[in-house]
């Protein structure tokens, strides 16, 4: 994956260019950059501080595991990182782009062009077939229909579901649905994959299958950030950080952690 964005003064361009300069190599090294990230929700009573001053730098091509107990702020962190939830304070940069400095609906464009989401409960659209679900991110892209279809079929084949393309999600097993969700996240060839508890609803055998797929994507150069509380899959990450009460505790690389 070599998506790097030319950063103009206005930071309003999402057009990728090839990395060629030391500055761009530096940006690849700081592919994800989080500074002083805070997120506070207005609860029924006192405000709830879900994230408390997070700082994090993730190089391009990493497979980062974000772990922590329920309520530690992992999913909130992923939502903010994915441009879905504005932080109360701080800054998030992906490939040099200040996400929350993007004007208007450019944040939606950013998600479409830069991100692939994999959700815990798959969140496939129930009335669309596997192929149509994979095609969804391309629905609002200007490209020939035949090209969209060919791309979706290719990605479905890559996750081993070429023969299930016409099935509705209700007719697929949990593992198959997860793989369709991964194919949907991959169809745009995004520089960054974000996964929220992707194995949370799977048995151990299917979990292994799905994690092997993520590992393969990582080996191909994809940058992946995965939120999980499943210690069993920690070995797939090349770096793990732990969130506790909205603070980043950090963590050694997976290999060192054993």
């Amino acid at each position: 994956m070599t998506h790097v964005t030319a950063q103009t003064g206005a930071e309003d361009s999402l057009a990728p260019v090839l990395p060629s300069s030391p500055a761009q190599e530096e940006r690849a090294a700081r592919f994800i950059e989080v500074r002083g990230l805070e997120k506070t929700f207005a609860g029924d009573g006192a405000p709830v501080q879900a994230l408390r001053g997070l700082d994090l730098v993730v190089p391009e091509g990493s497979f980062l595991g974000v772990m922590g107990q329920s309520g530690s702020g992992k999913s909130t962190f992923l939502a903010v990182l994915g441009g879905l939830s504005h932080p109360s304070a701080g800054e998030v940069r992906v490939d040099g782009i200040d996400l929350y400095g993007l004007p208007g609906e450019r944040l939606a464009d950013f998600r479409r062009e830069y991100l692939g989401f994999v959700f815990q409960s798959f969140n496939l659209v129930p009335y669309l077939t596997a192929l149509e679900n994979v095609l969804l991110p391309l629905a609002v892209k200007r490209m020939p229909a035949a090209e969209k279809r060919a791309r979706a079929i290719e990605v479905l084949g890559r996750v081993g579901l070429a023969d299930r393309s016409r099935h509705l999600p209700g007719k697929l097993s949990g593992g198959e649905q997860e793989r369709v969700a991964i194919a949907r996240a991959l169809v745009n060839d995004p520089p960054l994959l974000l996964a929220d508890e992707p194995t949370g609803a799977l048995d151990s055998e299917t979990t292994t299958e799905v994690m092997e797929l993520f590992a393969e994507l990582h080996r191909e150069g994809n940058t992946i950030v995965m939120v999980t509380h499943n210690l069993e899959i920690r070995r797939y990450f090349d770096r793990t950080v732990v969130l506790k009460d909205g603070r980043l505790e950090g963590g050694p690389p997976a290999g060192e952690a054993g």
Partner: peptide
């Protein structure tokens, strides 16, 4: 609601 959230997450604009 969830479906609309998915659409937004994968890059659909509000107008879309």
């Amino acid at each position: 609601t969830t479906e609309i959230g998915v659409f937004r997450a994968i890059g659909f604009r509000r107008a879309q």
